[in-house]
């Protein structure tokens, strides 16, 4: 139970608290954005997990005699220049792009939130330094920084995680710091302090649970940004190493055949759009659920 709910149940009475939680549960499935997001993202995750079963062909094995075929009953979306089945590569690509997209937010989320919480709670020189560092990082365009860092760290998945972590922790730090600044003036924090609780306990048991919702909501849009960055790296040929099936590198391969086989570059992009939409819906739904007072 969160600190706010603890206080509430003590003062408002347990039965009302129970009714409140039942009401928020009902809101859970009445929330169209959330449902749409769960359906779309759930379906994509399912496709990614079941890739070995669902994909009709090997996504990597070349079959040159069948190169650049139009969609047919054997290859629903045609084949690429090496004769690889486009549908199979899309399905396997979901594994790579979704995995990196979702995992990449974890490290910056944790690091940024902790640094932001400490800066907001203790203030002083630490806060001043953190905020200056945040300003510096915001001077670099996200993509430019990620591209440079992936180059410096060497191609491959680990570099992508590291590069995204180095760049995007600042946003979480800024968001959580701002929230902590507001919440630490609340009465229940003053109460906890008067009660003699340690700073660590107040910060991590009482304040942090109440400020993380904004960071979680931001994380959903961050996932979209990360997926777009990974796809862009793949398109630039500096991301996940070929011949691994990845949506961005599929668009790059397809661009050469734009005049004759326009589907090759179009379809992977559409899949990215659908993925982003699903995650955005999920994020909007979570935002409604977690902070109903901010609803449009």
């Amino acid at each position: 139970m969160t600190a706010a709910a603890e206080v509430k149940s003590r003062f408002v009475g347990r039965r009302r608290a129970r009714r409140r939680s039942a009401r928020s549960l009902r809101a859970w499935y009445r929330n169209p954005s959330l449902m749409a997001g769960i359906v779309v993202v759930g379906a994509l995750v399912l496709v990614a997990v079941l890739a070995p079963v669902l994909a009709p062909y090997d996504p990597i094995k070349q079959n040159l005699p069948d190169a650049l075929q139009d969609p047919s009953s054997a290859h629903w979306l045609g084949t690429d220049r090496y004769g690889r089945d486009v549908l199979s590569r899309l399905i396997w690509g979901a594994r790579v792009d979704l995995r990196i997209g979702f995992l990449a937010v974890l490290i910056p989320f944790v690091i940024g939130s902790v640094i932001g919480a400490l800066a907001g709670y203790f203030g002083g020189w630490f806060d001043a330094v953190v905020m200056r560092v945040v300003d510096v990082f915001f001077a670099f365009p996200f993509l430019v920084m990620v591209i440079t860092l992936v180059f410096v760290l060497g191609a491959g998945e680990t570099s992508i995680y590291l590069a995204i972590a180095i760049v995007s922790w600042v946003a979480y730090a800024k968001i959580v710091r701002g929230e902590v600044l507001v919440v630490k003036e609340h009465d229940y924090v003053t109460g906890a302090r008067l009660g003699g609780l340690s700073d660590r306990r107040i910060l991590f048991r009482h304040i942090t649970p109440n400020v993380l919702s904004q960071a979680v909501i931001y994380a959903m849009s961050d996932i979209v940004m990360d997926i777009l960055a990974i796809v862009t790296l793949g398109y630039l040929g500096i991301g996940v190493t070929p011949p691994t099936a990845e949506w961005g590198s599929m668009i790059l391969d397809g661009q050469e055949f734009l005049t004759t086989h326009w589907l090759q570059a179009t379809i992977p992009g559409l899949v990215v759009v659908v993925t982003s939409l699903g995650v955005s819906w999920l994020g909007d739904g979570l935002a409604d659920l977690m902070s109903p007072e901010q609803r449009r």
């Binding site: 992009g269 982003s276 939409l277």
Partner: peptide, 12 residues
């Protein structure tokens, strides 16, 4: 929709 489109893909 606009927010979820990879920029380079829009270009293509």
């Amino acid at each position: 929709v606009g927010q979820g489109m990879p920029q380079f893909w829009v270009g293509i």
